[in-house]
Structure formats: structure tokens, C-alpha cells
């Protein structure tokens, strides 16, 4: 019996044969990421071998990981949310203004961030789920609103001077890994607080999607809405929850972003929604819904930023190269997905 149980140990061959769409795409993502990173180590040399290089990728992208997780959730139910970048900017600016201009407390500012995220998620979710409005339009409006509000809250960028905040910002968690620097001194590698938050979220969401009924309902709704309804799933509620969670994650991600950059600015997180969508897709989430995996999304973010690091360290650091590389990467993965799925379903 256990042989047929995907959660326990079937033989390796069995597993490859019976891969679901989700795990197939996930496998591709991880393999390509590992190859890419190995390639970077071989051709770009030392830098990528250092643990800190890898951790820096995490540090810089903790917020993106969280945003991408949210995107994956709504994409699995067959929706989309393009407001997350705007929400991030709004959260940063609101928290910055609260902390500096109003002399606020850093922990209260977390609540503000969360509240903004929940509000966006709940409102957008309600429109999408209960009024059946296309998520693209709703969240497009959400993005407009968040960006506009950011400017209204404060139109000029500024760095936060609040002490409690900066203390939190500078908190580093040292790990048992490390390397020796140029002077031969051993330096332990560190991660920022945001990375811990991101990892916890990744693990929680992975469990949610894999084992809970709510998680499986996400897949059901994304796979076939009508069928899900017939199976007795509350489709509207499921959709609402997905959007609510995405909004909430955007709030949390926004705060992590804020914690990383330490400033408020209307131009913060420009295009973050596109990066998050791209990461989810690279991670094997299909925009048609019903297929996707949080671990994949995690690797999607890493792949996207690793390739950027490779390009930068290859000396092509003009701004346009970043844009072009990202696009090529996305294009590649989209075509891989399209070809793989077409092959698989033809059989």
C-alpha cells in the first residue's frame, strides 16, 4: 500500500513515472538552478563558492520570496495579483512616515504593515471571489491605488532614522557556515531577519498546500472551478482566502523589504509584481492554475537573482543587461513549460 503513497518512499523509478505536473515542473526548476549555480562556480570562480554570496542572494531577496509565495497561491487557484509591488511600496512609506514623522514604535509599525496587506487582500479577494470580477482588473486597480496612495502619504523618498527600527534592521543571524576573508580571518556567514521570516513562510505554505484540505482545495479550484464546486468545495471562499493570504503576504513582504532597505520611497519595489510572477513561473507554477509548488517558487526567486548576479559579475553591469537577462530567463522557462506540458499531455 505504501508504495502507492506519494508521501512515503516509493522506488525512485516509480516516482519519476508517476510524477504529477506539479512535481515534474518542480524537478526541472531545481535541476536547472543547481546546474546554473554550479556553472557560475566553475566559470565565474571563487565568489559563488562563498557561503556569504549565496546568503546575500537570500538577504537581498527575502521580500521577493515572500511576495512570490503569495503570487503562487493566487496563481494556483487560477488568479493573479499584480498589486503586491504597490502594496510593498505603500507599506514601506507608511511605516517610514509612522516611525520617523510620528515617532512610532517599530513593533506597531509591523502591525500597520500587516493591516495594509490584510486590507488589500480582503478587499481584492472580496471583489474577485464574491462579485466575480476578473482578478487582473481588480489587482491592477489595487496596484494603481497603492502606488498613488504611496505618493499621497509622502511624495519624497527618505531614510528612516528610528533607533528601534535600525537596531532590528542591523540584526544579523550568524550561521555555522563561513569562510576566510582576504586577510585570512574566518568570518561566519550571516542572514538577515527577513530571511528567517521568508523561510518560515515557505515551510508553512508548503505544508499548507501539501497536506491541508484548504491547500488541496486551492489546487482543485485552479484545476477546474466547476468541478471543484461539484465536489463540494466552497469555491468563492477558497478564492477569497487565496487573495487574502496573498495580500497578507504582500504586507509581510513589504515590511521585510522595508527592513532590508530602511527607507520609504514611491519608487520602491517597482516591477516587484512582475519579478514575483516571473519567479513563480520559473518555479513551475502555471498561470492557468492548478499546478505549482512553493519550494519551486523559492528556487524560482533564487534562479532569477543568481542569473542576475552572474551577469553582473561577468562585467555586464549596465542596467539594461539585467532587464534583458531576466526576460531571456523568463522566456526560456515559459517555453520549457509549454513544451514539456504539451509533450506530457500528448501521451
Amino acid at each position: 500500500m505504501s508504495k502507492n503513497n506519494s508521501t512515503s518512499n516509493g522506488s525512485f523509478l516509480d516516482k519519476v513515472k508517476n510524477l504529477t505536473d506539479t512535481s515534474l515542473l518542480l524537478t526541472i526548476t531545481i535541476v536547472i538552478f543547481v546546474l546554473m549555480y554550479l556553472g557560475a562556480i566553475i566559470f565565474q570562480g571563487g565568489g559563488f563558492l562563498k557561503v556569504q554570496t549565496f546568503f546575500n542572494i537570500l538577504n537581498a531577496n527575502a521580500a521577493l520570496i515572500i511576495l512570490s509565495c503569495g503570487l503562487s497561491l493566487v496563481m494556483i487557484i487560477g488568479g493573479i495579483d499584480i498589486s503586491v509591488g504597490g502594496v510593498t511600496a505603500l507599506v514601506s512609506m507608511s511605516c517610514a512616515v509612522y516611525l520617523d514623522n510620528m515617532g512610532g514604535n517599530v513593533y506597531v509599525s509591523m502591525l500597520i504593515a500587516l493591516a495594509i496587506g490584510v486590507a488589500f487582500g480582503a478587499f481584492q479577494g472580496a471583489l474577485v471571489a464574491f462579485l466575480d470580477i476578473q482578478p487582473f482588473i481588480v489587482t491592477l486597480a489595487g496596484m494603481f491605488f497603492a502606488r498613488g496612495m504611496t505618493t499621497i502619504v509622502n511624495s519624497d523618498p527618505f531614510n528612516v532614522a528610528n533607533e528601534g527600527f535600525n537596531e532590528l534592521k542591523m540584526t544579523r543571524i550568524y550561521t555555522p557556515f563561513g569562510s576566510t576573508n582576504a586577510k585570512g580571518v574566518y568570518v561566519p556567514a550571516y542572514v538577515e531577519l527577513g530571511v528567517v521570516v521568508a523561510l518560515v513562510i515557505v515551510i508553512l505554505l508548503f505544508c499548507l498546500l501539501r497536506w491541508t484540505k484548504l491547500g488541496r482545495s486551492f489546487y482543485a479550484v485552479g484545476g477546474n472551478k466547476e468541478s471543484a464546486l461539484m465536489l463540494g468545495i466552497n469555491v468563492k471562499k477558497t478564492k477569497f482566502i487565496a487573495h487574502l493570504m496573498c495580500g497578507t503576504l504582500a504586507g509581510i513582504g513589504g515590511f521585510v523589504y522595508f527592513l532590508h532597505v530602511g527607507s520609504g520611497s514611491p519608487s520602491h519595489a517597482t516591477g516587484a509584481e512582475m519579478d514575483a510572477i516571473a519567479s513563480s513561473i520559473i518555479g513551475g507554477t502555471m498561470l492557468t492554475g492548478g499546478v505549482g509548488n512553493i519550494i519551486g517558487t523559492f528556487f524560482g526567486v533564487l534562479s532569477l537573482s543568481t542569473i542576475q548576479n552572474i551577469v553582473a559579475s561577468a562585467g555586464l553591469d549596465e542596467a539594461w543587461w539585467t532587464g534583458i537577462t531576466r526576460a531571456v530567463m523568463l522566456c526560456l522557462f515559459l517555453i520549457i513549460q509549454s513544451v514539456v506540458m504539451a509533450r506530457k499531455h500528448k501521451k
Binding site: 471583489l127 462579485l131 470580477i133 476578473q134 482588473i137 481588480v138 491592477l140 486597480a141 489595487g142 496596484m143 494603481f144 491605488f145 502606488r147 498613488g148 496612495m149 505618493t151 499621497i152 511624495s155 514611491p266
Partner: peptide, 16 residues
């Protein structure tokens, strides 16, 4: 820069 916020409100009213 604040324009989008107003547009968003209009859009939401429309789609609703």
C-alpha cells in the same frame, strides 16, 4: 504620481 489612486477608485466603481 498620485493620479493612479484616483483612477483606481474609478476603475473599481466601474467594474463593481
Amino acid at each position: 504620481d498620485a493620479l493612479p489612486a484616483y483612477k483606481a477608485v474609478v476603475v473599481i466603481i466601474l467594474v463593481v
